[in-house]
Amino acid sequence: MTPVLELRGIDKSFGPVQVLHDVAFSVYPGEVTALVGDNGAGKSTLVKCVGGIHPIDSGEYLFEGKPVQVGSPRDAAGLGIEIVYQDLALCDNLDIVQNMFLGREHKRGIVLDEDTMEEMAARTLESLSVRTVKSIRQHVSSLSGGQRQTVAIAKAVLWNSKVVILDEPTAALGVAQTAQVLELVRRLADQGLAVVLISHNMNDVFAVSDRIAALYLGRMAAQVKTSDVTHAQVVELITSGRSGDLGLTNGVPA
């Protein structure tokens, strides 16, 4: 299987500080790839490089097997890459439909095409089997944490996206809502999307992922299949960059 998104040899520095060293990262359609690593390992920087927020210093960026230049978030969105950040970037004073189309509104002549937007929003939420939201004309301020997360995810898949990156979607959620969001993450991948899940929670990672990519001090320690590793091995990769045959040897991937 060809990865839909593939990074090779990515370097990224901020002034004198090199944050990413020769990072490789592959993401496959129909799969959930968990991106794990300690605080400061480079997860957020890597994701921002993918999303076009930070330009990469060197390395290859391939999308569907072809080299591409991603210099801005608009480039990434144009390829079909959507990122849901932890703060969700939703506007409390707008309703669900308005939030989902914020900045990309459909117009009919000079007025907004509310009917089409409402129908598209409803269809997207239904395709994700979201039944917890009462009305799509509800203000986002009235939604629970889990519902907000759901709306942010639905917003990301509305645009026929191919890759959806979720930054800690279950942090700060209760157990019942975490379960719903995890099931939604799984459903996205089962519908054919490539999903990247950033999480610190090993149960979340093992519950829904197909692959695990572990970053250690700015280097990709290992990219493994979830069916091939144990919890202890993944924790070792995160904390020391290696585990048995897996991981880095003298700072270089095996």
């Binding site: 157990v175 090993m202 149960n203 990672v205 093992f206 519950a207 829904v208 069916s227 590793v229 919890h231």
Partner: peptide, 30 residues
């Protein structure tokens, strides 16, 4: 609930004890 709350344990045990070809394409779902 038990699976989602203990998936790291469930899959670690599964990955140690199930035959590799059988678990390669196995999907665990709720």
């Amino acid at each position: 609930e038990v699976y989602l709350g203990s998936a790291a344990q469930v899959r670690s045990r599964l990955n140690l004890d199930a035959l590799s070809p059988s678990r390669e394409h196995l999907r665990l779902r709720t």
